[in-house]
Write a protein that binds this DNA or RNA. Sequence first.
RNA 1: UGGGGGAUGGUGUAAUGGCAACACACAUGGCUCUGGACCAUGCAAUUGGGGUUCGACUCCCUGUCCCCCAGCCA
Length: 570
Amino acid sequence: MNGNIDAAEESVKGRDFIRAIIDEDNRTGKYEKRVHTRFPPEPNGYLHIGHAKSICLNFGLAREYGGLCNLRFDDTNPTKEESEYVESIIEDVTWLGFDWEERLFYASDYFEKLYEYAVQLIKSGDAYVCDLTAEEIRAHRGTLTEPGENSPFRDRSVEENLDLFSRMKDGEFPDGSKILRAKIDMASPNLNMRDPAIYRIKHASHHRTGAKWCVYPMYDFTHGLSDSIERITHSICTLEFEDHRPLYDWFLEKLGVYRPQQIEFARLNLSYTVLSKRKLLQLVEEGFVDGWSDPRMPTLSGLRRRGFTAESIRRFCDEVGVAKRDVVIDVARLENSIREELNRTAPRFMGVLNPLKMVITNYPEGQEEMLEAVNNPEDPEAGKRSVPFSREIFIERDDFLEDPPRKFFRLAPGREVRLRYAYFVTCTDIVKDGDGNIIEVRCSYDPATRGGDAPDGRKVKGTIHWVSAKHALDAEVRLYDRLFTRSNPMEGKSDFLASLNPDSLQVLSGCKLEPALAGAEKGGNYQFERTGYFCLDSRDAAPGKLIFNRTVPLRDSWAKMAGKEPGGKA
RNA sequence: UGGGGGAUGGUGUAAUGGCAACACACAUGGCUCUGGACCAUGCAAUUGGGGUUCGACUCCCUGUCCCCCAGCCA
């Protein structure tokens, strides 16, 4: 499903600095006019909207230039990686609509080759085995402003290094006792060049290679070589790797292998959420959310469950663009992207979230009729449906006010409004309980206004939605709001958890939906008129058990006018 | 006060020596059987200073501010 990417999406893009580089490379023939990218996640967590930007960039570039894009798992740290994550990543990239064809790779596929490259480095005198402890290495590294000192093991002979490295591989030494280092320059102003680690000892089981290895290559060594092996042309990564680029190039040059070029861009930040795997993991592990796929999470699986479509996310990524400066994108942009799509595509229904009973006193008892409603005013092809009407209906509590303020166009004592696709009704009476709460409104209707138009040309200011009480479907509806109350939860000294929004989830039960919604399907998106866009919860809904998630509310200019919260507490 | 990057309206993205444009947000008006959508209009920017040039967001010099780097993480 969702696999097709329509051509319309392609035209939106302008030129960004990466495309400019590729254009130039194609002009000069640097890579024989090939474009071959890769998306290289570490399988240590679920993919989020920030990864979507990288996925859309890498796969999008390949598609635009008639090139290829690989999916490669950067799985060089067995203690953090799990198969569960590789499965979820495969699912998410596929869902987003991209295809790596037969090019699904793992850095761990290259362990043997990488080991040989390390041996080659030792032989050429460019790597050595170091016995310093982690603390000692840190002490020898120097500081940002002071050069480091050479390791006392730096001048071991090639033979000794070869022997030691081989025994490291064979499991003779415990974790942390030895490490293989590149011999570069302890005085380099770039700390990454101060004899960085290439291989460390980890007696840990790897999710793919099991117990076969007890030495694992580091990212800096692995990444460029994996790119080289796959003959990647443009290795696109995020800004924090800028000063790893000299090292990336150093390994490839020393080894004399094919050289891709690394290009860095600014990662995506979204307001009112966090986008770091570590923080997301914490939210999951400490139970602040209900797993990686909680609809409030910025993960692709969370957004999917929330009701976001792959197309809306792709479009969002395209619109946000790619550049080198740190940015925070307003989450409103993401919401706009899904609204824009769903307005065009989502069939409309009536659903009452906070029901208030209405009795139409002059409507014959026991009578019921079917009224015609438009499925999607934006799409004539969507056709029409019938909605049952009867003497007792539910309306939204917010649509009635006993003492309405100015500019309130909805129902109030003595006032006439239109019931959408039905009749004009006038409020004649209110019924309250012992505590003074309104429990029922009583109205009279004008039979001449059937369908919603008055033959005498009279107008009403308000149109409200409704559901026939007798025919209503009961449902649970989950309303979501932003996970954090602060635009940037990471800002300032206080813990990001301190700005968790306590009202990010609101569960409504006893909601009343029009009967056609019984046919709602998982994966479908629906608009509840005047309320928002909703989808069936993919995990908890079941036949006969309607549970809807609100993807995003409709814009609500009344709420804005009335000074209520944006996001619409219903 | 080492090294590497970055700075264009409220938020993003363009313009690469030639009228600072587009989107989102916001505001106002119109239209409407969704206070939705749509239409129209408006608000609003080149980090400071200097230089080159007929002409600078763009090139040069200089200042300021922001981000990243001292994992045997990626």
